[in-house]
Design a protein around this nucleic acid. Structure first.
Lengths: 173, 173
DNA sequence: AAAACTGATTGCATTTTGCAATCGGTTGCA
DNA sequence: TGCAACCGATTGCAAAATGCAATCAGTTTT
């Protein structure tokens, strides 16, 4: 995880930032899952990251300028991690990545409903989402007060799908 | 490089395909550099990939369905690697990745001119490029015969910039 | 006072990576 | 015909990254 300055190519440099198995998973959980604390990231990730790797990646993402850390006023020991603008602008890339994975890889239906909605929403939805993230993480005012948040919308769709699947499984049993 | 099925999340699965330091570099060189042979990829990469890693990644990308290999009729020993449709549809992601890197990372001017043009060209340029790649790699007919290829355009811009920089350096000396 | 939770850190075995040398076969040229 | 250069790899080995479990000191909850 050192890998410094192989070349000045934009794609290479991007890869040097999140060309590993975990960095983008952490950012995904912060962006789409709204996770801000170490334990939330540790236990919330479906992929089961180890605590030492998480600690290492959080440190690295901070050094790279993708995250910042602050004290949680409600708990002397808690740290709150925030996305920087640099990380927030990954939203379109994550949307494209999800869309590509949905087409070509064996995704699960529940976990890909969010990617599907995000893809259909297109740039306007991504812009709205990024504004919401700027509000949450950077404290910027949220000028356009327009309905439920993108994250809530995605989450609701996910929950609805899980519920309908559980119902179908129940009625079959 | 085993990492199988951590979760069915589209972003996670995408990361399992090219969440490493080299896979996307190889695809970049094939897509933008037009490289098709082992040695071209080995010596052409600015980042200096090792031959065993290259062999391993080519094998892996074939297993994943991103590449195919065929005999080169002109040379009994040569193998020609081709992109599949799955890999060709990465073009928009690479374009976004390059655009993001150009904004946030210390890219070199020469190496980022391509990313800049590709970003400005937008979806129409990406579509044209993907059609050209389908022609080159999949043998599909190229219906819209429209001017110089995208790769040639990008390459020319790169060469022009390198030349102008060399000129400036000469006149300064 | 005890139990649970906070963000980590440590030690250790396994896996992956990067590097250099090398392989057997093919080709182009003298 | 000989021989150097080139072809796509493969091997051996050291260094680094990863994954796992146990643990830490401090904080909050019960």
């Amino acid at each position: 995880m050192s890998m410094d300055r192989r070349s000045g190519c934009p794609i290479n440099l991007s890869l040097e930032v999140f060309g590993d198995r975990w960095s983008l998973i952490i950012l995904r959980d912060m962006i789409f899952g709204g996770r801000r604390h170490f334990r939330e990231l540790l236990n919330g990730s479906m992929e089961g990251i180890a605590s030492n790797i998480l600690a290492d990646r959080l440190k690295r993402l901070m050094e790279l300028g993708m995250l910042t850390k602050a004290d949680d006023p409600s708990h002397k020991q808690k740290a709150i991690y925030s996305l920087t603008e640099m990380a927030i602008t990954l939203v379109p890339i994550l949307a494209h990545l999800g869309a590509w994975g949905r087409v070509w890889l064996p995704v699960s239906e529940e976990l890909s409903i969010r990617a599907e909605l995000l893809e259909k929403g297109g740039q306007p939805m991504w812009d709205k989402f990024m504004d919401e993230l700027r509000h949450e993480h950077l404290g910027k005012p949220l000028d356009t007060a327009s309905g439920p948040s993108v994250r809530a919308t995605l989450q609701a769709a996910y929950q609805a799908l899980v519920a309908s699947k559980a119902l179908a499984a129940d009625s079959a049993a």
